[in-house]
């Protein structure tokens, strides 16, 4: 027996949660873009979305946020750290994106933890939604998750004919469900329909082969096509490069952090103009070495969740699935191609 909730009752429950939380869910805008946005009521949520244009990482690692302000007051210098005070519920988190957040935890919560990221995590509950459809660009099952993976969620919902199956995963999730008005949850024998499987990508052993191919001419050839925009990094649930800048406005200083990417011209350029990743190929290579070599070496898993956003969004079809297969074909013969 499982607990299920009908769609209209789900909306009632989400609206109840919205009384005490900021409710965030996928919203379609007029221009054909779907993004995780604050909603004032659950009816605004696009329940039939496939995947969002940007990943929900923007609620933990926002495109732009103030880290702290420094102000001179009565002859004293006062530093005020930014604080996240809003309790949030994100509805509609896909399993790949939840794994993306779990991977972001590794660098951001590694000691010393990034305090603001930690607050966003603590203040936010995740109500996941299993995928109903495997898209042509999806390859999550090769990257350690699955369309119905409940790990990294607080609650996972799975859509069935007469509503949503509810799986409570954490205590935070149980607390949310406790707020569900009485009588809305039903018992059911229903089982979720089977999905077609996602594309398979040979990820096994990739880190070892990457170690052998840093100087391979392959990266030069791949970079021929790359435009070196930040698009792949910005749609990616696991990319976390940022830039920091201080703004001074009439004696009040604000330290701001924004998204950045390894493709931008200033990446790794240091005082004096030296750039240890100068040139187009080293920039593009950095993207794949970070995902498939540095991150696994540091944190134990590849920094990709198989959401397929970069595959779909890249204007010139730099396809990470193809890159992984190509790297396997390069084998251990560095520079021999």
């Amino acid at each position: 027996m499982t607990q299920i909730i009908s769609k209209s009752d789900l909306i009632t429950w989400l609206n109840k949660l919205a009384e005490s939380h900021v409710l965030i869910g996928p919203v379609n805008d007029n221009a054909g873009v779907t993004l995780f946005r604050k909603v004032s009521q659950a009816e605004e949520i696009a329940f039939d979305f496939t995947n969002t244009t940007l990943s929900p990482k923007e609620w933990f690692f926002p495109p732009t946020e103030t880290l702290f302000t420094v102000e001179r007051k009565d002859g004293q210098v006062e530093l005020v750290p930014a604080e996240d005070v809003e309790a949030k519920v994100i509805f509609g988190m896909r399993p790949c994106d939840a794994r993306g957040i779990a991977l972001l935890d590794k660098p951001f919560l590694n000691e010393p933890a990034d305090t603001l990221y930690q607050q966003h995590r603590d203040k936010t509950a995740l109500i996941g939604l299993s995928c109903r459809e495997v898209l042509p660009e999806c390859f999550c099952t090769s990257m350690g998750t699955a369309p119905d993976d409940s790990s990294n969620m607080d609650i996972l919902l799975t859509e069935v004919a007469d509503g949503y199956i509810i799986q409570v995963v954490t205590e935070k999730g149980a607390a949310l469900l406790a707020e569900c008005p009485e009588g809305l949850l039903k018992q059911s024998e229903v089982t979720p329909p089977a999905l077609s499987s996602a594309a398979t990508v040979p990820i096994e052993g990739i880190t070892e082969i990457m170690a052998e191919n840093f100087d391979n001419v392959y990266w030069e050839r791949l970079a021929d096509r790359c435009l070196h925009c930040n698009l792949c990094a910005y749609v990616c649930p696991t990319c976390y490069c940022f830039d920091v800048r201080d703004y001074n406005d009439k004696g009040k200083v604000e330290r701001v952090r924004t998204w950045e990417s390894c493709q931008s011209s200033g990446f790794t350029r240091i005082a004096g103009g030296y750039d240890r990743r100068a040139g187009k190929a080293p920039h593009l290579r950095q993207r794949f070495y970070h995902k498939l070599f540095y991150f696994p070496a540091e944190f134990g898993s590849v920094a990709c969740v198989g959401c397929g956003r970069c595959v779909k969004a890249c204007p010139v079809n730099v396809d990470i699935r193809e890159v992984i297969m190509d790297v396997h074909n390069l084998g251990g013969q560095s520079g021999q191609q």
Binding site: D29, N30, A31, V33, L35, L54, P63, L227, H228, C229, N230, L231, A233, Y234, R245, W259, S261, S264, S265, G266, P315
Partner: peptide, 29 residues
């Protein structure tokens, strides 16, 4: 409404044959 959505990925600039400044005005720090 449209510009608010921009994530400044600069794909528009990077793909444009007319955008070739050695240092783009938005990259100047």
């Amino acid at each position: 409404e449209h510009f608010d959505r921009c994530c400044r990925c600069y794909a528009c600039r990077q793909v444009c044959p007319g955008c070739y400044c050695t240092e783009c005005f938005v990259d100047s720090l």
